[in-house]
């Protein structure tokens, strides 16, 4: 198997690992795919099949009453993998929660290999050599699953807050979807300021980070990172200050 591009070797403090790495550079340590790899795959396949059979006998796929356009269930929850977005609907208008956020996530994920200029940490689970990307990605994943868990287990009728152990029959007062709309002379500069400062400060304070990335990658990275924190950041703004919109125009609101 030929490498198309040379991969950078890890520099590990573990000297033993270093030794094997330099040995294997000349003569890579390889094994026959059959039987070594195929055997493991076979075991994985059997285990998955077993688990699937057990689950399929133990739990039935849900089937409710026949669909009826006139009877709206309350709440109408999306399948779990979209509940995170549904939860975002509490904090943002549908065009952001349902369209912009998913598009930004997909484009952002695809951008990762092109803006991450750090060649280190290939082939091992390693935090030390790529702290920044590691932390940002982890925050994204944790936020994603946090929102899913929150939406699945802590939301009841009318998407109100219900603890998992609380009965949905308890009546709860309707909570506001935020009351305060920031006036434009605060909201617009605040948003612009957030992005400008967010991009400018690291250039000042972490010059090296900026230099290694190069300006294009740097600004693309920071756009996605700041947007992610922006989206997550509106959640406490809603809970603590009851802010509905940061920017409000007749055409769109954020």
């Amino acid at each position: 198997m030929q490498e198309q591009q040379p991969e950078t070797r890890i520099t590990s403090s573990d000297s033993k690992q270093k030794d094997t790495a330099s040995e294997t550079q000349k003569k890579p340590d390889k094994q026959l795919a059959f039987p070594h790899l195929v055997f493991k795959e076979f075991i994985a396949l059997m285990l998955v099949t077993l688990v699937l059979i057990i689950i399929s006998m133990a739990a039935n796929a849900p089937l409710e009453e026949e669909a009826s356009p006139t009877k709206t269930p309350n709440p109408a929850k999306a399948p779990w993998y979209f509940v995170g977005l549904q939860e975002m609907l509490v904090y943002f208008d549908p065009w952001i929660a349902g369209v912009m956020i998913p598009v930004l996530i997909i484009v952002g994920l695809m951008a990762i290999p092109f803006v991450d200029k750090n060649p280190k940490g290939v082939g091992i689970y390693c935090f030390r050599e790529r702290k920044f990307s590691f932390i940002i990605f982890t925050i994204g994943i944790v936020a994603w699953f946090g929102l899913i868990i929150f939406g699945c287990y802590f939301r009841g009728p009318s998407w109100l807050l219900y603890m998992p152990w609380e009965s949905w029959d308890i009546h709860k007062p309707v909570i506001s979807k935020g009351t305060y709309i920031l006036p434009s002379f605060i909201g617009v500069p605040a948003t612009i300021g957030y992005y400008v400062l967010g991009m400018w400060l690291p250039i000042l304070l972490a010059r090296n980070f900026y230099k290694t990335l190069g300006s294009t990658s740097y600004f693309i990275t920071m756009f996605f990172v700041l947007s992610m924190f922006g989206f997550i950041g509106k959640i406490p703004l809603r809970f603590i200050f009851d802010i509905k919109y940061i920017i409000h125009t007749p055409w769109f609101s954020i």
């Binding site: 009826s68 009877k71 269930p73 109408a76 929850k77 369209v99």
Partner: peptide
């Protein structure tokens, strides 16, 4: 069923909010 119908209603409603291309975006 009800689950299917309303989950997909909620999901596809999002498309309405698409900027420019959706009727309510």
């Amino acid at each position: 069923d009800q689950l299917a119908y309303w989950a997909v209603t909620v999901g596809t409603n999002m498309a309405k909010a698409t900027p420019v291309l959706g009727a309510e975006g």
